[in-house]
Computed example of a mutant assay.
Amino acid sequence: MKKQPVLITDAARSQDAQLRSRQIRYVSMMAVRAGCLILGGILISAQVPLLPLWLALCALGMVLLPWMAVLIANDRPPKSKEERAADQAAREDVRRALEEPRPAEPEHVTIDSEIVEDPEEGYATRRRGD
């Protein structure tokens, strides 16, 4: 018998594992729906007592189960307290960032210079403008 590994983290289940469990729930609910259809056919041929009640229950299962299966299959697991707290903190950070006034942009300083030939030195130098 294969042993399951010990869980040492509180990380959420992977997306693939969540999808697989939702697929299994969906298929099992659709199997129950098919069972309702088969059971309804058997009940009609067997002529059991309270037949209208049993047929109504089977019909109700065949109508409601697909709707419930789709809702359950599309639902993700509930968030933990830590995930909800992290989401709230992220929303609070965004709200604060949007409310903070932007700092004024600094005035850009332009430095003007010109190239001057220095006859004594023999090369061109830059002189700052006034």
Rank of each mutant, 00 (worst) to 15 (best):
A11F: 08
V116A: 03
L37H: 12
A11N: 07
I42T: 08
Q23C: 11
I44Y: 03
S14T: 12
W67F: 14
R33N: 02
Q4R: 08
R33E: 05
P103M: 13
A73H: 14
Q15W: 05
P77A: 04
V48D: 12
H108L: 11
L50K: 08
R25T: 00
A17I: 10
A34H: 08
G40H: 00
Q88I: 13
W67S: 08
V63M: 15
T9R: 03
S28H: 11
Q47M: 09
L51V: 12
I24D: 12
I8K: 05
L37F: 07
K81H: 10
D75I: 04
E92K: 14
G122T: 01
D93W: 03
Q23D: 13
R20Q: 13
K81Y: 06
K81M: 10
R25H: 02
A46I: 05
C36G: 04
M30K: 04
L71Y: 02
Q4M: 04
L98R: 09
R128Q: 04
A69R: 06
L53R: 14
L57Q: 13
A56M: 14
I72R: 11
A90F: 13
S28W: 06
A69C: 01
A34N: 15
L43E: 11
E92C: 10
E83H: 07
V32I: 15
I8C: 04
A90T: 13
S45C: 12
D16E: 13
G122E: 02
P78V: 02
P52N: 10
H108A: 11
Q18Y: 01
E120K: 04
R95V: 08
T110H: 09
S28L: 10
L65Y: 07
L60D: 11
D75G: 07
P49G: 13
P52D: 08
D87P: 00
M62L: 06
A56T: 14
G35A: 09
